[in-house]
C-alpha cells in the first residue's frame, strides 16, 4: 500500500473502512427487519429498491472495495505485526492486561469473512445471476436449516465481539480525545454491537422457530 505509507495511516484506513461497514450493516439490518415487520411486501419492495436505485448501484462496487480493503489491510497488518516478534515468550499472560476480544480481532474478523463468503454464495449470487421470483421465500427457507442458522448466529456473535472493540478502537485511531469521549464511545460501541448481533440473530432465530 504505497498511498498509506506509515503504520498509522494504514491503521486509519482500516478504521475508516470499518466504520463505513458498520453504517452498511445498519442499512442491511433495517432491510432485514422488514422481513418480520411490516412483512413480505415491504421486504420485496426494499429488495426491488436496492436492485434498481442508481445510487445503490453506484454504492455496490464501493462497498465491495471497502470490504476487500478492510479485509486485506487487516490481514496485512496482522501478518506484519506477527513478524515483529520472531522468538515468542515461553510464558505469556496477556489476559492480565488486555481483553480477549481486543487481541483476537483477526479471528473474529476471519469468522465474519468466512460467513460473508457463505452469505454471498447463498444470497448475493442467486440474486444477481438467477431470476428469483420470491426473495422473501429464499431468505426464509434458509433459516429453516438448523446448521445454517447456527452458523449465522455464530457469525453475528463474532461480529458483536469484533465491534465491541473495533468501534471505540477506530475512534481512538482517529485521535478522538480519550479523556472525555472514551466512556461514551465504549458504551456506544457496546450498544451498536448488541443491536447488530442481537438484531440479525433474532431475525434468524425467529424464522427458525416460525
Amino acid at each position: 500500500m504505497s498511498i498509506l505509507k506509515s503504520s498509522v495511516e494504514k491503521k486509519m484506513g482500516l478504521a475508516l473502512a470499518g466504520l463505513f461497514l458498520v453504517f452498511f450493516l445498519f442499512v442491511h439490518l433495517a432491510i432485514n427487519l422488514t422481513l418480520i415487520y411490516p412483512g413480505k411486501e415491504a421486504f420485496d419492495a426494499a429488495v426491488e429498491f436496492m436492485a434498481t436505485n442508481p445510487f445503490i448501484q453506484l454504492m455496490q462496487p464501493i462497498l465491495f472495495l471497502v470490504f476487500a480493503f478492510h479485509i486485506y489491510m487487516a490481514i496485512y497488518l496482522e501478518l506484519t505485526n506477527r513478524s515483529k516478534r520472531s522468538v515468542k515468550y515461553v510464558k505469556n499472560n496477556p489476559g492480565a492486561n488486555s481483553s480477549w476480544v481486543s487481541r483476537n480481532m483477526i479471528w473474529t474478523g476471519l469468522m465474519i469473512f468466512g460467513f460473508l463468503l457463505l452469505h454471498l454464495y447463498n444470497y448475493f449470487l442467486p440474486f444477481k445471476t438467477q431470476n428469483i421470483s420470491d426473495h422473501y421465500e429464499l431468505v426464509i427457507s434458509l433459516f429453516k436449516n438448523p446448521v445454517y442458522t447456527f452458523i449465522y448466529v455464530l457469525a453475528f456473535v463474532a461480529l458483536g465481539l469484533h465491534l465491541s472493540h473495533g468501534f471505540q478502537s477506530a475512534f481512538q485511531t482517529f485521535g478522538v480525545p480519550r479523556e472525555k469521549c472514551n466512556r461514551p464511545l465504549v458504551i456506544c460501541g457496546n450498544i451498536i454491537s448488541i443491536i447488530l448481533a442481537v438484531g440479525f440473530s433474532a431475525i434468524a432465530i425467529y424464522f427458525y422457530f416460525n
Binding site: S7, V8, K10, K11, L77, N81, K84, R103, S169, Q172
Partner: peptide, 18 residues
Amino acid sequence: MIAAMDAEGFGSCTNTGA
C-alpha cells in the same frame, strides 16, 4: 518520529491497551 518507529521494525497499534 512515526517514520523512525516504522523503520526500526516496531509493529502497529491495535489498541488492546496492554
